[in-house]
Nucleic acid binder design. Structure first.
Lengths: 343, 343
DNA sequence: TTGTAGGCGTTATCAC
DNA sequence: GTGATAACGCCTACAA
């Protein structure tokens, strides 16, 4: 690999390094003629600025690092696109990495970014407890924003979705449609997100006068392929519910499919509401079903995130330091009014 | 942002920079006692190596950049996961960026990587003509591998899928099932991938004695949401085909859904075969359909890519410089045997 | 308008 | 075993 440096250009153009640097950075005070000579030399040598060197002296990269737990969920790609859109609008660039649940990998990437590859980092995902990483970032005062995950004991720049409230809203919606026997299909309860939706479900049930028992839950680990298992569990229940609040759209779609195969009609026999509103990516409606779902305002979240990190990078403290967004109910055709009868 | 340097550690531990560096890099020739002092000081100061400085002197980052056109396709996320898996296995790290079809953005990222943020780059996607970028990379001899896109006139490290062959295989499969009237739903024909599948379709049709006319094609731009339009075009055809070879799974699913709504049964009324085999991400089967599709061997492709880039980084020329992988037919339940009759 | 010199934080060479 | 010292490529006063 032969990459030319400013010195090479200087020699070829017959000027000093300073002059070359000035030209390359579009600064005033260089004669037109010299300027041209320099640009030609730069072109001829295929000059590429060494950002390592530049960063070393300016300590600015114009790049923000985004650390994911995994790329594998459609909602993540969706968010990535939104983040990028806003980053471009604000004149910064984003690089993403995924640590595939390996904390060691995550630490490596954070170090990489902190060590001069980026001006700040965005941490996304609630699969892991990142408090160690976060403490590190705080200790050296490196700009960062956390999305989705949160820590009661820490006051950090945070962009959140009100999962508790969203779950409550979903249950209220089903309740208002006349459903009295609602079951919650959980996600992986070791993840914050799943716990919050679980809590929201519980609270809303209590609020409407139903004491949720173990009979009101079907537990899953949230992984791809868990839907059919959950559907089986549902079918085996002695007392079949009239409605389901499912942790996310992927599981909901899987379950709908399985229930379909078992001869149940959606929403006639059972109403289903999901979470995430994945229509951007999945514009085809599996079956003829357009899933009713709690949508996350990803665009607004992305904007808030980018604004926050930029303000941190510029040395300010964002106000407020935590922003929480409300999910929005997106009606499809998988929920149906039901005349209240027994139970 | 207060990040401690080696000098700070040296002062705190009462030793020289050199000694600190040796300890931090696990080199021999430092007394146990000194070693401990240094580690303690490093911990106390929350030391993070400045990779910009390190890169400046070693010109190695241990990181490979991956440039996408867009994150928005599920198959891209899938590939990202595979690349990462192999990268970890080989002891390197990956950072991803997407330029959202903006060539300016792409150039920025490439510069960023070339300028010391990475040891090499992987270019993915055939949405754009990257020959300018590639020439630049070749000119300075920066390690790179191109996936999916290719350039007849350039001998570059390349990982490809045999889209022509895959399309041919799909058509042969339908032909062997007895289908004689097959229509191809194209992707965006400004993309290499779409053109190749289009050519493969044509060749296979010719080979089986059918001269494809404009009647054998439905053209789309490959974007999300184009399926229903294509389905409409199909329904309006005076002479309805018995089978469809669709550019990719996403469009195929969309079409199946629309055709369903129009009262057609799949595969009884019409057989459908797609491309990409997106089951990893979409394990639920839209409707009760499990799409028959030409799968891309993403795992093998990822492995080849990582191996290639590593060999380039280590100064070797990979042999062969271009690797092409064959798609594999994945049978679902959307294609059905048909007794040859008229036409 | 142009050039000289110093330093960013690291690693590497070579004395001590 | 340890410590000066010189790069790496760039930017930026400041001097000419």
């Amino acid at each position: 690999m032969i990459i030319a440096s400013i010195l090479d250009i200087a020699r070829l153009a017959g000027v000093s390094k300073t002059t070359v640097s000035k030209v390359l950075n579009h600064q005033y005070g260089v004669r037109e003629e010299t300027r041209n000579k320099v640009w030609e030399a730069a072109k001829a040598l295929h000059y590429t600025p060494n950002i390592a060197a530049r960063t070393l002296v300016t300590s600015k990269t114009g790049v923000i690092g985004v650390v994911y737990d995994s790329f594998k969920s459609p909602i993540y790609s969706e968010l990535a696109g939104e983040l990028e859109k806003w980053a471009r609008k604000m004149g910064v660039h984003l690089v993403f990495c995924s640590c595939n649940q390996q904390q060691a990998s995550k630490i490596h990437y954070i170090q990489y970014f902190m060590g001069g590859a980026a001006d700040g980092v965005i941490l996304f995902g609630s699969a892991e407890d990142d408090s160690a990483v976060i403490e590190r970032l705080m200790a050296v005062n490196f700009p960062f924003v956390v999305i989705e995950n949160y820590y009661e004991e820490l006051q950090i720049p945070n962009v959140l979705v009100d999962n508790v409230g969203g779950a409550e809203q979903a249950v209220r919606y089903l309740h208002d449609l006349g459903h009295r026997h609602i079951v919650h299909v959980t996600g992986n309860l070791r993840h914050r997100v799943a716990v919050d939706r679980y809590l929201g479900f519980k609270q809303a049930m209590l609020a409407s006068g139903h004491e949720p028992t173990s009979d009101h839950f079907i537990y899953t680990d949230g992984s791809i392929g868990c839907g059919p298992v959950a559907a089986q569990a549902l079918l085996e229940k002695p007392d079949r519910p009239t409605a389901l609040f499912v942790f996310n759209d992927l599981i909901a779609y899987e379950m709908i499919d399985s229930l379909h195969l078992a001869g149940l009609r959606i929403p006639e026999d059972i109403s289903v509401i999901g979470f995430d509103h994945l229509v951007g990516l999945l514009s085809f409606k599996p079956g003829i079903h357009n899933l009713t779902s709690m949508g996350q305002p990803l665009g607004e979240m992305a904007r808030a995130t980018i604004e926050m990190i930029l303000s941190l990078i510029s040395g300010q403290t964002p106000e407020p330091i935590t922003q929480q967004f409300k999910p929005v109910l997106q009606e499809g055709n998988t929920c149906k009014r039901r005349e209240p009868d027994a139970s």
